[in-house]
C-alpha cells in the first residue's frame, strides 16, 4: 500500500521539538519550529577536553664513550633523527658507537638537529666541522642543513636495530610520539616489508597522552599501574582516540578503578599494534624501539598476544633511527673513499 505522505507528515514543520536529558528531571527546554536544536546539543556536550598537553617528558640525555679517541679514527660519521617530539644524534668512529644524545625537538628542525649533535659532543672536543658525513632521518629529515643525504626512518630504524640487537632481528616495532612503524628486515638490516601509520593518533604515543591527560596521571606511570589489575579487563572497544576517551569516561563513571581502565586501554593499544605487525608478518627476533618501549603495560601485552618476547639491548632503543643513519653515513663515506682511490 502506498502511504499518504502529505497527510502523515502534516505538522512536521510546525510541531515543536521537546528536548530532555536522561539524568535531569523533566524537560530542559522546548524549542519552537525551525530553531537550531543542533546548537543545543553542542552546548550540552560542550565540556572542554581542549588543552593540548606536554609531550612524553623523557629527560634529555647524552652519553660518550671516552675510552675511544676520535683523533685516531679513520672515519667519523654522524646520524641525526629529527622526530616530532624528540631528536637524537649518534656519532660513530669507524662504524663503532662513540657518542649519542636525545633532546626534545623544538619548533625549528635545523636548530633541533644542531642541538642534538652538540649535546652528544658536549664532553668531547670533536666538532661538527670535523665530521665529513652526516645523514639525516626522521620526520624533520629534510631540514637538517648539514646532512649530506637524507634516508627514510624506516631504513634507518632497521639498520640501527640490526646493530643494536644483532643480525637475528627480523621484526621491529617502533612506536613514536606521532606514528607507529612495523618493519620486517633481513640479516643485514635491509628492509623487506614495512608499514608506517602516521595518520591516526590511535596506537601512537599521542593516544596515550590523551589518556594521561584525561586521568591526570604522569605518562611514565601508566604502564606499571596498568599491570596492577588482578584480572585483565576486556579492551576498550573504540579504536578512535576521540571515542575511546568517551568510553574511558563512561567506564570510570560506571565505577571502574583507574588501573582497570588503564589496563583496558593498554590492551587495546597492544591489540592494535599487533594487528599492524601481523600485516607485515611477525618473525623472531623481535625488537621494540621508540617511546612505547618504555611503556611496560603495552609491551608486556604485545609480548603476550604475539607469544614472543622482545629482545633487549644494552643500548637505549630510542637512538635506533639516528644510529642507523650514522651507519648509512659510514657506509656511504667508505664508498666515496673507495671511489676516490
Amino acid at each position: 500500500m502506498i502511504l499518504d505522505f502529505p497527510q502523515l507528515i502534516s505538522q512536521w514543520e510546525t510541531l515543536p521539538v521537546h528536548v530532555f536529558t536522561a539524568h535531569e528531571k523533566g524537560e530542559i527546554l522546548t524549542i519552537g519550529a525551525g530553531t537550531a536544536s543542533g546548537a543545543v546539543s553542542g552546548a550540552i556536550q560542550g565540556t572542554a577536553s581542549g588543552a593540548v598537553t606536554e609531550h612524553w617528558k623523557w629527560p634529555e640525555q647524552s652519553n660518550v664513550d671516552l675510552s675511544m679517541d676520535w683523533k685516531k679514527a679513520a672515519r667519523i660519521t654522524a646520524g641525526i633523527d629529527v622526530g616530532s617530539v624528540s631528536s637524537q644524534a649518534v656519532v660513530l668512529l669507524d662504524g663503532k658507537l662513540y657518542a649519542w644524545s636525545s633532546v626534545r625537538t623544538g619548533s625549528s628542525s635545523p636548530d633541533s638537529a644542531l642541538k642534538a649533535l652538540n649535546q652528544a659532543l658536549k664532553n668531547t672536543d670533536l666538532t661538527l666541522e670535523k665530521i665529513p658525513y652526516v645523514v639525516g632521518t626522521g620526520y624533520g629529515r629534510v631540514n637538517v642543513p648539514f646532512a649530506k643525504k637524507t634516508i627514510t626512518e624506516i631504513a634507518c630504524h632497521a639498520r640501527g636495530a640490526n646493530y643494536m640487537g644483532g643480525g637475528t632481528i627480523r621484526t621491529i616495532l617502533d612506536m613514536g610520539g606521532q606514528d607507529c612503524k612495523a618493519i620486517h628486515c633481513d640479516e643485514k638490516g635491509k628492509v623487506t616489508n614495512f608499514l608506517m601509520n602516521d595518520k591516526c593518533a590511535a596506537g601512537t604515543g599521542r593516544g596515550m597522552e590523551v589518556l594521561a591527560d584525561l586521568l591526570r596521571i604522569p605518562i611514565q606511570e601508566i604502564g606499571p599501574l596498568s599491570l596492577k589489575v588482578e584480572e585483565e579487563p576486556p579492551p576498550v572497544s573504540s579504536v578512535c582516540v576521540v571515542f575511546a576517551k568517551t568510553e574511558a569516561i563512561g567506564l570510570l563513571k560506571s565505577g571502574w578503578p583507574v588501573e582497570k581502565v588503564l589496563a583496558s586501554y593498554c590492551l587495546a593499544m597492544a591489540e592494535r599494534v599487533t594487528a599492524l605487525l601481523n600485516r607485515i608478518g611477525v618473525e623472531k627476533d623481535f625488537f621494540i624501539t621508540g617511546g612505547i618501549a618504555k611503556n611496560i603495560g603495552v609491551v608486556k601485552r604485545i609480548e603476550r598476544i604475539l607469544g614472543i618476547s622482545a629482545l633487549n639491548s644494552a643500548l637505549d632503543s630510542q637512538i635506533a633511527g639516528a644510529l642507523g643513519a650514522a651507519l648509512f653515513a659510514n657506509a656511504l663515506l667508505e664508498k666515496e673513499e673507495r671511489g676516490k682511490s
Binding site: 623487506t192 616489508n193 608499514l195 595518520k199 591516526c200 573504540s238 571515542f243 594487528a275 607485515i280
Partner: peptide, 16 residues
C-alpha cells in the same frame, strides 16, 4: 621490498 603505504584508523585498514 614490500612497501605498505596508508594507515589504519578507527574505520578500517587502508593500505596500498
Amino acid at each position: 621490498m614490500i612497501a605498505n603505504y596508508g594507515y589504519t584508523d578507527g574505520s578500517g585498514e587502508y593500505y596500498i
